[in-house]
Design a protein around this nucleic acid. Structure first.
Lengths: 128, 128
DNA sequence: TCTTGACTTGGAGTTGACTCCAGAGGATAT
DNA sequence: ATATCCTCTGGAGTCAACTCCAAGTCAAGA
């Protein structure tokens, strides 16, 4: 697959794909005889994984480390698991925080519903 | 309240507090005769709101707009509600995305559990 | 053969959100 | 009174994560 195809498939710019490769967030992609990238299925999986994890807010640094560990082979399985657990826990915490903020926003919006109603009816704004 | 107190109370640096005020993310804080900030309770509520919304990932730009609308008075109630609904929906979408990534991480971690077990037992890695 | 267009690289520029700094003014402690 | 703090301002610097650019290569079409 060419970079254009991968770019379209995962909705990531070509620049971002080259950037991810350069910094080691995805593995090095093979080139044909004229030096042009040819993404394998395996490469694509990494692209997709990177995109997914980045969208969830995992830091690039951490994902680089994960790939580096992966490329060192089976000796690093325990370390990789550790890393994933750590990130999983961070993510879960962030989700919880965001959920409580979501609730707060819902509450605020409800208050606005009320206030609009009150204004429409020409009523007094309730105290406090 | 002084900036030091507010800074400690909400765990935001003094620089961040001054920055937030400068860009209009919190209202202008009154100064005493020697020009030093004296935060009111109202100011603190805005600081807390800003911190909460920022932690959930709402963009500074949007929060600046919200405060600007708020300061324009009741004419902007409808616009503020719109803004909040829009942000609420974005937030809900991000949470969902993150939740599915969380599940994916959990799955991956389980796989690692298995693989560690298999290595410990000296068994063959299962195909694929 | 000449041009067009996709691709390459290395490096510079941008954006959002802070974070730090220098220089100056008051207030407090010795 | 001098030193030490805390605060002020305006502006510069930093960091993560891209994003853009210039100069060059190569293959394919008119």
């Amino acid at each position: 697959m060419t970079i254009t195809e991968v770019s379209k498939k995962y909705d990531l710019s070509q620049d971002t794909l080259r950037y991810y490769e350069r910094i080691g967030l995805i593995p090095g992609v093979n080139r044909n005889k004229s030096g042009i990238r040819d993404y394998t299925n395996e490469d694509c999986k990494w692209v997709e994984f990177a995109k997914c994890m980045r969208s969830a807010g995992l830091a690039i640094e951490v994902l680089i480390e994960y790939l580096a560990l992966f490329e060192q082979g089976d000796e690093t399985i325990a370390a990789r698991k550790e890393l994933l657990i750590e990130q999983r826990n961070r993510l879960a915490a962030r989700i919880e925080e965001m959920q409580s903020t979501l609730k707060r926003l819902d509450g605020k919006i409800q208050t606005y519903d009320q206030s609009v109603l009150i204004r429409e009816k020409g009523l007094q704004w309730p105290k406090e």
